[in-house]
Design a protein around this nucleic acid. Structure first.
Lengths: 146, 146
DNA sequence: CGTGTAAGGAATTCTGACACG
DNA sequence: CGTGTAAGGAATTCTGACACG
C-alpha cells in the first residue's frame, strides 16, 4: 500500500468526511426514524444539516445510536442510556485513533498478509506486525535489521 | 466495555450490516453519481438492491471507489484502476479483520486510556496494550500476573 | 469508452399535529 | 416522557435517451 493512498485514507477517515442518511442509520441499528428524530430533538444525538436538507449522521453517531439501543434493551431509561453511551463513544474514538495512528501499511510475514503497526516502543529496535490467517490474527515482534 | 456490547459491535461491523446511499458515497469520495452508476454497470463496483429501490453501498465499496478515484487521478485507465483497487480492497479487509479479531476491550495503563489487544503470542504470558494520549499511540507489553 | 445532462416518475425524508400514557 | 401514525411538501434517486468523442 503506497504512502500517498495511506495518508489520504487516514485523512478521509479522520475527517469523518462521510455521512449516512437517517434510513441507513435506522436499518443498521434497528432504531426507528421517529426515535432518531426524537433523540436528536432531546440532544442525545446529533446530526449534520447540509443546507436545510435531510439529516446526515456520522459513523460515530451510528455507533452511539447502536449502543443506546443495546442499553435500552437492557432496561435503562433513555436518559441513562444516552449518558452511558456517551462514555462508550469515547472508547470507540480511542479505538479509531489507535487504528489510524498506528497503521503503517501492509506487509507479508511468513507468507501471510500482515499489518505493519510500527515500532513497538521508543527504543525503535523492533517492529510490531499483526499477522492474519484463517485462524485469526496474531502479533509478531520483528527486530529491525540495519 | 462489556463483553456483550463488544460482541454485538463486532457482529454489526463484520456483517457489514449498514449501507450508504449513492449521494453519501458521492459526497464522501468526490466521484459523481453518474460515474458510480456507470462503474457499477461495467461491473467494477457493486451495490445492494433492496427490493428494486435505491442503491446501497457498503463501507468496503466506498473505500474501493475512493481508491479508484485516486488511481484515476494518477492517470490510470478506468479498467486498470478498478483492477488495482481490487487488490487494495483485499488489504483493507485485512485491516478490518485485525481490528475486530484482536480488540479485547478498553483498559487504563499508567493513567491513560488504552486498548487491550490480547495476548502478544501463544505463550500467553503477556498482554499487548495500545496506549493513547495527546502525542499519539504507543504499545506496551504487560506481563500477566497470575 | 467514459461521462454529463434534461425529464418525469418513484422512493425517501421533512415538519408539525395529534394520539397514548 | 417516549414513541407512533397520517399528511402533504421537499429533496433524492431511478432509468432510458441523447450528446460528445
Amino acid at each position: 500500500m503506497d504512502k500517498e493512498f495511506q495518508q489520504k485514507l487516514a485523512q478521509i477517515m479522520k475527517a469523518n468526511d462521510w455521512h449516512l442518511g437517517i434510513g441507513d442509520v435506522s436499518n443498521a441499528t434497528g432504531v426507528s426514524q421517529t426515535k432518531l428524530r426524537y433523540w436528536e430533538h432531546k440532544g442525545y444525538i446529533e446530526s449534520i444539516q447540509g443546507k436545510g436538507q435531510n439529516r446526515k449522521f456520522t459513523y460515530s453517531m451510528l455507533m452511539k445510536v447502536y449502543q443506546m439501543k443495546l442499553l435500552l434493551d437492557q432496561g435503562y431509561t433513555l436518559a441513562v442510556a444516552a449518558q452511558k453511551a456517551e462514555s462508550k463513544s469515547h472508547e470507540l474514538k480511542i479505538l479509531k485513533q489507535v487504528l489510524f495512528d498506528r497503521f503503517e501499511g501492509m506487509a507479508e510475514i511468513d507468507g501471510e498478509p500482515a499489518v505493519n503497526l510500527g515500532y513497538l516502543d521508543d527504543k525503535q529496535d523492533s517492529i510490531l506486525y499483526a499477522i492474519v490467517n484463517k485462524d485469526g490474527t496474531k502479533f509478531k515482534v520483528v527486530p529491525v535489521t540495519k
